[in-house]
Write a protein that binds this DNA or RNA. Structure first.
Length: 490
RNA sequence: GCGGAAGUAGCUCAUUUGGUAGAGCACAACCUUGCCAAGGUUGGGGUGGCCGGUUCGAGCCCGGUCUUCCGCUCCA
């Protein structure tokens, strides 16, 4: 990351705070690491992004419906999904190389080494101890093993280790107000992804909304991950919001649908007028346990190319797992005729294509792309700078600012009429204090695409000045055309 | 977690060797004001991140602690 880019990122963070987009969480108590709150304009922008996504999924696609599943889920959900077993490993760091290892990997590597030296008994002994201590969560004993066998870091070659720490991806909490006999019985997790809420409702949705494959289920909502290092402003947070759509398809057609959604999702981004050259696909080579194919849509943030959205071909992994753990069939009966056999496709577990976008990351994307510190040359040749957010009008927190040129001569009254006229249709902002130029610049700073000024001429011919954010150009239009003009751009 | 940097008004920053904190912007009120942040007057606002030490006296020196940022590390 260059210093220049770094500065731009800092400026965006400062701007976000100063103008009420994003605040550090619990700031009066010195903040909570990697947790942020959205302020008045941030909440509007975030909501507008969410709504735009939701509409593009559930309104523009006849075969996609939405749900809103709970954050709490039955704990077995996470055993089935693989989150419990795959994300609770003890870790240890080498202080010299700064490299982090999974403790079991480290010890197993040593055992293998012993085996190669022909010390079969020692190998067996070591692995037996390890399993015993792992099962007991005895980190002190595990570290003793590492020291006893003089296990070294392959990078630094030293045995300078930190203490062992448990890495838990999922946040745990207690469910129910009364303690259970066995404390473990009361544990529920805060979901680390929204997808499982869709999978466990697959049959409910399919039956009640009478969906036929191929079809999709969309959902937006909070998810929680206890990241080891969560940083970079709202890019990686421990509490974040996902917008996910799981698309269920007939086995054998997954490649075609994967390509379809890969293409479709990038087009969604471009439909907002975001610059194509800042986007790229990143195809995964190393795949997660459930994935058949996977790619990320990356965007060039001020901190470099980073993932905004993932498209994954998840096979029938999730539904199969839930079928196995719940002992409830997760199958679909496909009445369509298979041209090869002349019979219906019959019962099967559908394959899934997932599109998963981080709402907070999308927010940061929009903000990063919108932010500009512009140098403008005035009529007298002198230069000035203005800070402007070129937020797409569809997403802008405030659509229209209504500004009486003077706070007298009946101009505020006329302005209030316009407010009343537009308020029911989109978010408006009214202001009558300070010089007009200052008011324009304040609207630029929060990304308001249109400003309308009411002046004395308005009283004579019912026209107003409309001023455009990006070009700073002004036009005279009829008072009663303002609402229409703004709505055309939303 | 390791290394580095920084915490003074809402924001950006001053306060030369230790002597009971200041500016600009922002905010509020009034006046002024015909179109791109720059008119005037007045006003509100700070236990200097927190705790302790040295000193007659600490925003400044020392120690600890917390938080944030950057780099490394990790990342479904």
């Amino acid at each position: 990351m260059s210093i220049q880019h770094n500065n731009k990122f800092q400026e965006i963070i400062s701007h976000a705070k100063e103008y009420g987009f994003v605040f550090p969480s619990s700031e009066i108590y010195d903040g909570l690491s990697a947790v942020y709150d959205y302020g008045p304009y941030g909440a509007e922008l975030k909501k507008n992004i969410r709504d735009y996504w939701w509409k593009s999924m559930t309104q523009f696609n006849d075969n996609i419906v939405g749900i809103d599943a709970a954050i709490f889920m039955h704990p077995t959900t996470w055993k089935a999904s693989g989150h419990v077993d795959n994300f609770s490993d003890p870790m240890i760091d080498n202080k010299d190389s700064k490299k982090r290892y999974r403790v079991d990997h480290l010890i197993e590597a040593k055992a293998e080494e012993l085996a190669l030296e022909g010390k079969k008994e020692e190998e067996y002994e070591l692995l037996k101890k390890m399993d015993e201590y792992l099962a007991a969560d005895d980190f002190v004993a595990l570290k003793n093993i590492i020291e006893e066998y003089k296990i070294k870091c392959s990078v630094s070659g030293t045995s300078n280790w930190t203490d062992i720490r448990q890495f838990n991806l999922m946040f745990k909490t207690e469910f129910g107000a009364v303690a259970a006999d066995n404390a473990e019985d009361n544990i529920v997790y805060l979901r680390p992804e929204t997808a499982q809420g869709i999978f466990v409702n697959f049959l409910n949705v399919q039956k009640t909304a009478r969906m036929k494959i191929p079809f999709g289920i969309a959902q937006t909502g909070k998810a929680f991950r206890n990241e080891i290092v969560a940083r970079q402003f709202i890019f990686r947070m421990r509490e974040f919001e996902q917008m996910e759509m799981q698309f269920f398809v007939r086995p054998g057609t997954e490649d075609e649908w994967y390509k379809y959604w890969k293409n479709e999702r990038l087009n969604w981004h471009l439909s907002l007028g975001l610059p194509k050259e800042k986007y790229r696909y990143h195809d995964h080579v190393k795949l997660a346990h459930y994935a058949k194919e996977a790619c990320d849509i990356e965007y060039e943030f001020p901190i470099g190319f980073k993932e905004v959205e993932g498209i994954h071909s998840r096979s029938d992994f999730d539904l199969s797992q839930h079928q196995q753990f719940s002992k409830k069939k997760q199958q679909y009966f496909d009445n369509d005729i298979n041209p090869e056999t002349g019979k219906a496709f019959g019962n099967y577990i559908p394959y899934v294509i997932e599109t998963s976008i981080g709402l907070d990351r999308m927010f940061l994307l929009v903000l990063s792309n919108a932010y500009e510190e512009e140098t403008i040359t005035k009529e007298d040749g002198s230069t000035d700078t203005r800070i402007v957010l070129h937020i797409p009008a569809k997403l802008a927190p405030v659509k229209l600012a209504v500004l009486p040129l003077l706070k007298k001569d009946g101009l505020p009254e006329i302005a209030q009429q316009l407010m009343a006229d537009c308020k029911p249709y989109f978010k408006c902002f009214y202001e009558e204090k300070d010089a007009i130029g200052k008011r324009y610049r304040r609207q630029d700073a929060i990304g308001t695409p249109f400003c309308v000024t009411i002046d004395h001429q308005t009283k004579e011919d019912n026209t107003v000045t409309i001023r455009f954010r990006d070009s700073m150009k002004q036009e005279r239009i009829a008072f009663n055309k303002v609402r229409e003009l703004v709505m055309q751009n939303l």
